[in-house]
Design a protein around this nucleic acid. Structure first.
Length: 501
RNA sequence: GUCCCCAUCGUCUAGCGGUCUAGGACAUGGCCCUCUCAAGGCUAAAACACGGGUUCGAUUCCCGUUGGGGACGCCA
């Protein structure tokens, strides 16, 4: 790990939930960093690691959901995914080393005891932390406990670290790549506020802080970019590293990114967009837009347009430009980026995305050739902000009687008595006489309807739009009518007549 | 409660001691385009949290106040 030639970063989510914008941003950031180094010729590697040490909450479903969402975002990894649950033996091995060095001791306290202890400390306005009472157990007590097979955890002896390694110094420092702009400034934390923390649980599995260190050593991680919520863990992890004789330039470099906030400056919630990434896909967002938005949040990239692709972003990326203050996750900005990108896309791209991301159904095949449908997509794409907007417009062309547009209710409300004449006319000509309404004959029909003199201008067009598309919005009627299948509009005329009653 | 971090328009940000009457983007208002909704074009309004220093000069450096965030688990 000495030379900086082989940069190795990792994204290490825990499969206790989906990939949320907060996590995803970390994934993007690390990817951007590795990719930036790669473009500079560095043999950088991006490692994916599942931190599934929480046996109760980790699930295979979450894991595959995270993996899928990463792939969708276009985040590729060079090694992994590794799973911490596969490495229990290795953690025990390293724990033994630490134990033999005297940095770990057995704690026989129950969870309830610890919780009570903490509660009492908070009540007494003291920092809640483990008292270390099991460290003071007499040999007889220890032997007794072991004879009774009392379950125990292994705790890290912070005091020993301070005295034996840190020369009695209570402060531990490191240079944070993001929080410390100056090369010489440091993050430091008094160690005394950190209680002796658990390293191996009663179940024999490692805690997060321990597994991370063992993995980061074994996987030769050089740079750790993660959320700000991990700063205090960094000091715990640093202690373990150093107790394990990994120090100085052999330690990974750390950079902590500020948290993503909801518009009300609180934690990102479901309502404020803190949902798994695939839900964004379902809402009609493009992977590229999502990636772009996440990459641009909190600075980090200069002189780049909002709609540039991943590699352009990676090239311009510099972790030193990242803001050190928290930022609000703004879905409106995402929508804007999405709009820009959709507008740049060609018809084939849109068709492909509609099929892959939104499971576009085959309804259209009943009415249109692929060539004709291409024209419809081009029309629908125009001005669309989300992919679901495109789907919405496509429904104008394909929705039959059984389709899910609930607009007949709205139509019944909007139809006024004077519009009856128009519906009657359309019904007579195109339902009873079975004339062709859509396509090249539309212009002629339109003239005739105007000559009826019932309605004119905007009112006329709005009425026609409502009858023929069952919607109040959409592309210009003339363009719709040129492309739409006759059967679809005839169905709608019938329906309009029924609604009129 | 204790410890750590942060602070420029509503939001994301540019700014790294004079170029700041503080720039851009999103959102918002107005106008144009238009049968509608969008998209697009033009335009307007909108910020250096506060108080002390340092300095000839602070948005920029230091300290404090306030406000916000994070951490203090056999969760990660």
């Amino acid at each position: 790990m000495t030379g900086k030639d082989n940069i190795r970063v990792r994204f290490a989510p825990s499969p206790t939930g989906g990939l949320h914008p907060g996590n995803a941003r970390i994934a993007v950031f690390n990817w951007l960093f590795a990719q930036h180094e790669k473009t500079k010729g560095n043999n950088a590697k991006y490692i994916l690691r599942m931190e599934d040490t929480d046996e109760e909450r980790s699930t295979a479903e979450h894991e595959s959901s995270i993996l899928e969402d990463l792939k969708w975002l276009g985040i590729t990894w060079d090694e992994g995914p590794f799973r911490q649950s596969d490495r229990t033996k290795r953690y025990r091995e390293v724990a033994d080393v630490l134990f033999n060095k005297g940095f770990l001791y057995r704690c026989y306290c129950t969870e309830e005891e610890c919780a009570q202890e903490r509660a009492a400390q908070i009540k007494a306005s003291k920092p809640p932390r483990y008292s270390g009472k099991c460290k003071k157990l007499t040999n007889e007590q220890k032997i007794d406990n072991d004879k009774n097979k009392t379950p125990y955890t292994l705790r890290f002896d912070v005091e020993k670290f301070i005295n034996d390694i840190n020369d009695g110094n209570d402060q531990l420092s490191y240079h944070d790549l993001i929080k410390n702009r100056e090369a010489t400034s440091m993050m430091s934390n008094p160690l005394k506020v950190i209680g002796d923390f658990v390293v191996i649980k009663q179940s024999g599995t490692p805690t997060y802080n321990f597994a991370v260190v063992v993995d980061d050593i074994d996987m030769k991680i050089t740079h750790v970019f993660r959320g700000e919520d991990h700063v205090s863990n960094t000091f715990r992890q640093l202690m373990i590293f150093i107790a394990l004789d990994v120090k100085g330039g052999d330690l990974p470099k750390y950079g902590h990114l500020p948290m993503l906030l909801a518009p009300d400056k609180t934690k990102l919630s479901k309502r404020s967009g803190g949902v798994p990434i695939h839900e964004y896909k379902e809402m009609g967002f493009l992977a590229e837009a999502m990636f772009n938005h996440l990459a641009l949040l909190g600075g980090g990239i200069k002189g780049v347009e909002e709609t540039d692709n991943k590699n352009t972003l990676a090239k311009a990326f510099d972790y030193k430009d990242t803001a050190s203050s928290a930022c609000v996750y703004d879905i409106e900005k995402l929508k804007h980026i999405n709009t820009k990108i959709i507008q740049k896309l060609n018809e084939e791209d849109v068709f492909r995305l509609l099929t892959s991301d939104l499971n576009l159904n085959d309804n259209w095949k009943k009415y249109y050739s692929r060539e004709l449908f291409a024209k419809i997509i081009s029309l629908a794409k125009n001005g669309a902000r989300l992919l679901t907007d495109v789907i919405g417009t496509i429904k104008i062309f394909t929705a039959g009687r059984s389709d899910d547009l609930p607009l007949n209710e709205r139509a019944s409300l909007d139809f006024k008595p004077e519009q009856k004449a128009i519906v009657d006319y359309l019904h007579k000509e195109f339902v009873v006489s079975k004339k062709q309404l859509s396509g090249p004959t539309w212009k002629e029909t339109k003239e005739k309807i105007i000559s009826l003199g019932v309605l004119s201008g905007g009112k006329l067009f709005k009425t026609l739009r409502l009858i023929l598309t069952e919607r109040t919005d959409g592309p210009p009627l003339d363009e719709i009518m040129l492309l739409i299948n006759n059967d679809v509009v005839v169905e709608r005329i019938k329906k309009a007549r029924q609604i009129e009653g």
